[in-house]
């Protein structure tokens, strides 16, 4: 706590403290509201256009997704997800790395597997490549 000299403290009236407190509450509230908006809360894995699995991002797990070329391995960790391995020739979805924003997508087109993070306040609805 910052020590304010008495003659300056005398300038602060009771309501002023209230306004300061309200201002600080607004700071924290806006911080929570605006800085956590992009955090994802779940992941949807699709295979061949159909939803293969839906999971939350609270605990680590691995999902093996079968496709026409073989098995795509989706890895989930708290707050993020990635395609760990894919039989596709160019490995675009693997090299995308960890996805950690709501609305982020990794698509393994050859194996027809896609991964999308869901969450409040997604930055974008969809991505086109």
């Amino acid at each position: 706590m910052i020590r304010i000299p008495a003659d300056w403290r005398a300038l602060l009236r009771p309501g002023d403290w209230l306004v300061i407190a309200a201002g600080l509450v607004l700071c924290v509230y806006s911080g929570i509201g605006f800085w956590t908006a992009g955090a994802p809360d779940g992941v949807i894995v699709r295979a061949g256009g159909k939803v293969f699995a839906e999971a939350d991002l609270s605990r680590a797990r691995r999902i093996e997704v079968p496709g026409p070329l073989g098995t795509t391995l989706v890895e989930i960790e708290p707050g993020r997800a990635r395609v760990a391995a894919d039989p596709g020739p160019r490995q675009y979805c693997v090299r995308q790395g960890w996805l950690d924003r709501a609305g982020a997508v990794a698509i393994c087109a050859p194996n027809q597997v896609s991964l999308i993070l869901t969450g409040r306040g997604a930055d974008y609805d969809s991505l086109n490549y």
């Binding site: 300038l11 009236r13 309501g15 306004v19 201002g23």
Partner: peptide
């Protein structure tokens, strides 16, 4: 117009800043 006994220039200043 807030009661002067309770709210001084500091309140005015913060409200204006917001």
């Amino acid at each position: 117009h807030l009661p002067k006994r309770w709210f001084g220039p500091v309140s005015h200043s913060i409200l204006a800043a917001f």
